[in-house]
């Protein structure tokens, strides 16, 4: 088995990233999750957050991922997520508005809104705000 990992980030609409890396950290269900080559087969949920990988050439790759799955199998790590973007691609203004909207929805008519959906939207927006700003 090789000493690198084939990292792929796939959204329903297209393949976003396909690169050979030596290490990956992604936001798992129970906190950050590190994967090195020769990791055991695994399927994990991912939460909204920042995925970081170091490529074979030593570069850092950063990607914002949202809820989905990460699958390790052999020397491949596939992240299936509903959407993902590079930190510099984040539309901060839009994220801020989305966060406000979600907050307002959670605050006002708690009885009527779909709580799970609204809080998921809020978390996505917050993650975008947090990591988008850094670039």
């Amino acid at each position: 088995m090789s000493r690198t990992i084939q990292l792929r980030i796939v959204s329903p609409e297209r393949v976003l990233l396909e690169v050979e890396v030596v290490s990956v950290r992604f936001p798992g269900a129970d906190g950050a999750f590190g994967v090195l080559p020769r990791h055991a087969a695994m399927v994990s949920l991912t939460e909204p957050g920042l995925l970081r990988a170091r490529t074979v050439a030593g570069e850092e790759v950063e990607f914002l991922v949202h809820d989905g799955f990460a699958e390790v199998r052999g020397d491949r790590l596939t992240v299936l997520t509903r959407s993902a973007e590079r930190p510099e691609e984040v539309d901060l203004e839009r994220a801020r508005r989305a966060a406000e909207r979600a907050r307002a929805r959670l605050r006002n008519d708690r009885a009527r809104v779909d709580l799970a959906r609204a809080s998921a939207a809020l978390r996505r927006a917050l993650v975008r705000e947090k990591y988008g700003r850094r670039s």
Partner: peptide
């Protein structure tokens, strides 16, 4: 059975199936 499921089987399938 070899595959590790994080955080656990029911949670993973619970989200995977709707997707």
């Amino acid at each position: 059975a070899e595959t590790i499921l994080e955080p656990g089987g029911p949670e993973v399938l619970g989200r995977l199936i709707p997707k």
